[in-house]
Design a protein around this nucleic acid. Structure first.
Length: 424
RNA sequence: GGAGAGGUGGCAGAGCGGUCGAAUGCGGCGGUCUUGAAAACCGUUAUCUCGCAAGGGAUCUAGGGUUCGAAUCCCUACCUCUCCGCCA
């Protein structure tokens, strides 16, 4: 959520930022409502002030057992006038806060303005693997090895669900266990295992609601949502809390399943593991002081990159252009791993700084040592990393000529020492 | 699912119609004492919002209601706890 004061005082900056994010919102309407509200608020406050003064006097009169009838009836009139203004004020409040919740975060100054075509290539690690045979796709490989059963997943749940089997299931488990161990022991994150169902307040806190309602699975009797990412429950750990400055930075790593309806993306990546309704992910979440959040973003990207480096998967780092960033992000790097079977780069991690956008919505503050004032923290998160697509990259990069899969070195201890997935 | 209790400041906890934005304790901050620290003692310490300012206003889970006036009374929702039942 943006600060209404920022919108009021730096209207042009905000307008430019929204334009860069490719969002068409009429701020002038909002500012007009804001102006009206302030006018009515001032009128109401003045009346209330009268009431408050009079009430003190009435209290005294009654205490002294004097007659207060006249004053009381005068106050009835004023109270009625306040009541008359109240509905307008309430309506304005609602309109303003609804509208504020629909305004996205502004891009940071370092972010290139434009569409996905303007995404900026930051660096690459490794080079796409060359094979002396035609590499297969993960779909062909997994079916032949009987480690993923696409047909039965569809029977059980529908299209774009995954059913891992045997060593496929084991490899999935090895991956998230290893990633959690890496981040908790090497990068100083505290492990979290959160609920996979969250309430509307949590979804609003991180910015999924109200705008992305249709992208999420919703359970109606209880009014709960399936999490699209661990970002939601983990960031909301500290919703409505006042943290102490000494606690910061707070770093959490969480494995969760992630659930996405992917409504509106039918026809895209319909086969295989690239776009699925449920996938596993280890998410990294940071709560930091504002002055360090951009350094923390670089560190966070580094932690996600470490996963791909240790797995020896070639990847590239992109800084997203303003128009390609998510609703809540101020700056975002994507990591794309190369999938030689598909011949594609796959987004396996997205690392963002939200600055105080989520902290404002979720009311996550800390007390500043110098000013002693409550301040909003900055929140960040990044995938470290998302599994289904990383599984694609592993299967396709580690395939042999005979269609078997070498197990990446760091995962072998998690696979009972196994170094190769062979045909059944 | 049934019965009961409760949701108050950073935390714990009092207040149950009229100077209550709220006692007290803990914690925090400043000071006295001390070579330094601890202890002790003294002082101080909510947030949001309107206003150039002076100074207002709001907030005791949320939303309604009663009243001139609500943290305090009534209704509804949500949440927490205890007991019973059911259950992986």
């Amino acid at each position: 959520m943006l600060d209404i004061k920022l919108i009021r005082e730096n209207t042009d900056t905000v307008k430019a930022g929204l334009k860069a994010k490719n969002v068409n919102i009429d701020l002038d309407v909002l500012l007009e409502l804001d102006k009206k509200r302030r006018g009515i608020t001032q009128a109401v406050d003045a009346l209330r002030s009268q009431v408050n003064t009079a009430n003190e006097e009435i209290g005294l009169l009654i205490k002294e057992k004097k007659d207060a009838k006249e004053k009381i009836s005068a106050m009835k009139d004023i109270s009625r006038r306040i009541d008359d203004l109240q509905p307008d004020l309430k309506e304005l409040d609602e309109k303003i806060s609804t509208s504020l919740l629909m305004i996205p975060n502004l891009p940071h100054a370092s972010v290139p303005v434009g569409s996905p075509a303007n995404n900026q290539h930051i660096r690459s690690w490794g080079t796409p693997k060359e094979f002396d045979f035609k590499p297969k796709t993960h779909i062909e490989l997994a079916e032949a090895l009987d480690i993923i059963d696409f047909k039965r997943a569809t029977k059980i749940s529908g299209s774009n669900f995954i059913l891992y089997k045997g060593m496929g299931a084991r490899l999935e488990r090895a991956l998230y266990c290893w990633m959690l161990d890496l981040h908790t022991t090497q990068h100083a994150y505290t492990e979290i295992f959160p609920p996979f169902l969250v309430n509307a307040a949590s979804m609003t806190g991180t910015g999924q609601l109200p705008k992305m309602k249709d992208d999420m699975y919703h359970l109606s009797p209880e009014d709960l949502y399936l999490i699209p990412t661990a970002e939601v429950p983990v960031t909301n750990i500290h919703r409505d809390e006042m943290l102490s400055a000494e606690q910061l930075p707070i770093n959490y790593a969480a494995y969760t399943a992630c659930f996405r309806r992917e409504a509106g993306s039918y026809g895209k990546d319909t086969r295989g593991l690239v776009r699925v309704h449920q996938f596993d992910k280890v998410e990294l979440v940071k709560f930091v002081k504002p002055e360090s959040s951009y350094d923390e973003l670089e560190a966070l990207v580094g932690h996600a990159e470490k996963v791909l480096q240790l797995l020896n998967l070639p990847y590239r780092v992109l800084m997203l252009a303003s128009g390609d960033m998510s609703f809540a992000a101020a700056k975002c790097y994507d990591l794309e791993a190369h999938a030689p079977g598909l011949g594609n780069w796959l987004e396996v991690s997205s690392c963002s700084n939200f600055e105080d956008f989520q902290a404002r919505r979720a009311n996550i503050r800390y007390r500043d040592k110098e000013t002693k004032k409550p301040m909003f923290v900055h929140t960040l998160n990044g995938s470290g990393v998302a599994l289904a697509r990383t599984m694609v990259a592993i299967l396709e990069n580690y395939q042999t000529k005979t269609g078997e899969i070498m197990i990446p070195e760091p995962l072998r201890p998690y696979m009972g020492g196994l170094d190769m997935i062979i045909r059944p």
